[in-house]
């Protein structure tokens, strides 16, 4: 890592070129710029998680730490490539006045033409698309499950402010559940008459799963609180009997379908690098998430039990 103090965007760009030359000018094949907005103490963790995800998506990673906004502006950075990294990285610390204008530092450092992704590992602005850094990006990744408190409310606010390109890792966490549920209905093309989701209290993924099922199946989805971890059970009621996926331990689930024996199925809770890698795989608008977010943000449109009958 090359550390530079009292610098600016051009200085960081020059350091990136220098780092690349030091490594023998390897072909980088980078496909996107990933901007992480993170607190100082979590910067290393976030960079490490990105490092694992970057094996699949080589990227220029700009971790931006916004310090105290008072006082004279100062930009410092530490820049490096290689070391098990599929791309290049700069950890940029902004303090003083410049911390109010982080986009002025980030904009000149974006890879030419390539897509830009912004990730807030913890707290995100209430309207990411309106954020100065968020505006630069095609894809804005938040994680409502990682905020300090009121996870469900934070998710509801993010959904209300949904704009094309916004996504939340609480949604990404659902993919294996959704894949299994969709596969179950592939095998049993039955009409679903009701549904329920059990999860620990304040689990934003469960909120999204409920909204998705309501949106797609047009039935009311009952919510039950369990001890977790995460989502513990999903049931779809059909005339032939329930389709149920039950995962009490966060790892091994039991898959129950009408007229078939119960079967165990591995359903691991995935960690952040895996989620991030999935999120970066497609950078176009996720229509299904948009519809789900709309549904969650607008509870008055939710189907009632009576209507479902």
């Amino acid at each position: 890592m090359i550390a530079i103090e009292q610098t600016n965007a051009a200085g960081i760009a020059a350091a990136l070129v220098r780092a690349r030359r030091n490594a023998g000018s390897p072909a980088m094949g980078m496909v996107l710029t990933l901007v992480i907005i993170v607190e100082d103490e979590y910067a290393d963790v976030a960079l490490d998680q990105t490092r694992q995800a970057s094996r699949e998506h080589p990227a220029r990673v700009l971790a931006v730490v916004l310090g105290d906004k008072r006082g004279r502006g100062s930009v410092s950075a530490s820049v490096g490539i290689g070391g098990g990294w599929g791309g290049e990285t700069a950890l940029i610390t902004l303090t003083g006045e410049v911390a109010k204008h982080p986009e002025s530092v980030v904009l000149p450092l974006l890879l030419p033409d390539s897509p830009v992704v912004v990730w807030w590992p913890h707290d995100a602005p209430p309207d990411p698309a309106a954020d100065p850094l968020g505006r630069l990006a095609q894809r804005r990744i938040t994680d409502s499950a990682a905020v300090a408190r009121n996870k469900s409310r934070v998710l509801a606010e993010l959904c209300a402010a949904h704009a094309p390109g916004n996504t939340d890792l609480a949604w990404t966490r659902l993919t294996p559940w959704r894949a299994l549920l969709a596969a179950a209905l592939d095998q049993h093309p039955l009409k679903v008459t009701g549904a329920s989701v059990s999860a620990e209290r304040g689990n934003p993924s469960a909120d999204l799963l409920g909204a998705w099922l309501e949106d797609r199946l047009k039935v009311a989805v009952a919510r039950h609180v369990s001890d977790g971890p995460g989502i513990t059970q999903v049931t779809l009621d059909t005339k032939a009997g329930p389709i149920r996926i039950s995962r009490p331990d966060g790892r091994l689930a039991t898959f129950t379908t009408p007229n078939r024996p119960d079967r165990p199925i591995a359903l691991k809770r995935r960690d952040v690098p895996e989620l991030l890698a999935e999120e970066l795989r497609r950078l176009d608008e996720d229509d299904v998430y948009a519809a789900t977010a709309r549904r969650l943000a607008n509870p008055s449109a939710r189907p009632t039990r009576k209507k479902a009958r």
Partner: peptide, 21 residues
């Protein structure tokens, strides 16, 4: 057969899981 309401073409996150076999 009615189409599976949980599987729409826009939903490209969902992998295809093999049927029972």
């Amino acid at each position: 057969m009615t189409p599976n309401p949980l599987r729409v073409p826009q939903d490209r996150r969902l992998p295809r899981i093999a049927g029972p076999c």
